[in-house]
Amino acid sequence: MRIVVFVKQVPAVSELPWDAKTGQLRREAAEGMMDPAAKRALEAALRLKDAHGAQVIVISMGPPSAEETLREAVAMGADRGFLLCDPRLAGADTLATSYTLARAVGALSPDFDLILLGCHSADSETGQVGPHLAEELGLPAAAYVEKMALKGRKLTVERVSDGWLETLEMDLPALLTVTARAFRPRPVPMTGLEQAFGQGEVFILSAADLRADPEHVGWAGSAGRIIKIYAPAAQKKGELIQGTPKACVRELMARFGDRLGGLLAKDLSGEEQA
């Protein structure tokens, strides 16, 4: 069985590498990291590899630094990583991205059985790339998958979509996107990581290697044009209260107690209640 996993390197923004126990940011991860949902997709692939035997290749489109993410994937157990790295690929919208990824599948693993992606990446992702790619490749597909089972060539998956729990079935080859909730990833073994950085099966490809039509990749291949970009404006001119917490609350009540009481339909005046 051949599995292709698409991973993305995302900026380790303030919110994600965050230690639930200590409440501290994990600064060591502060540059770039494997997108959490993509990591889950990789874990799902590795579980299939453990259970059924599979060749797992990992593909990423991104800047040279994304090579680290691929090495991490190899350390976790992927067989090989490919980085699609070319200035011509930059500025791609989801349409151009999915075209490029489809070319990569064609070039690197045309006889794949399963394609896995994270359903939304943590930076700016739209959730569109997986479904677009399914259409590019003409595959049965499901997004937001949280469970899967394979029997022969039949894949059964469970997912939640808009508050509905669905069980879906499809035959391989197929494409799935997984959420960041399921398939808790295995730790990256340190020795594996060292090895992956030492030698490691990671290859770098250009748009020409994919024989991709330059008209369809990167900014040139994107439908949308950004005409303006800005920080969202704050809308209100509110009142600022400062001081000790207790003083703040007192002031809030003194100045806005009536308003709050009205909104809460409660008497907050502190007068004796009957």
Binding site: G238, E239, L240, C248
Partner: peptide, 8 residues
């Protein structure tokens, strides 16, 4: 964005 912003 707030009507009342409490700095604390």
């Amino acid at each position: 964005k707030a009507d009342v912003a409490i700095k604390a």
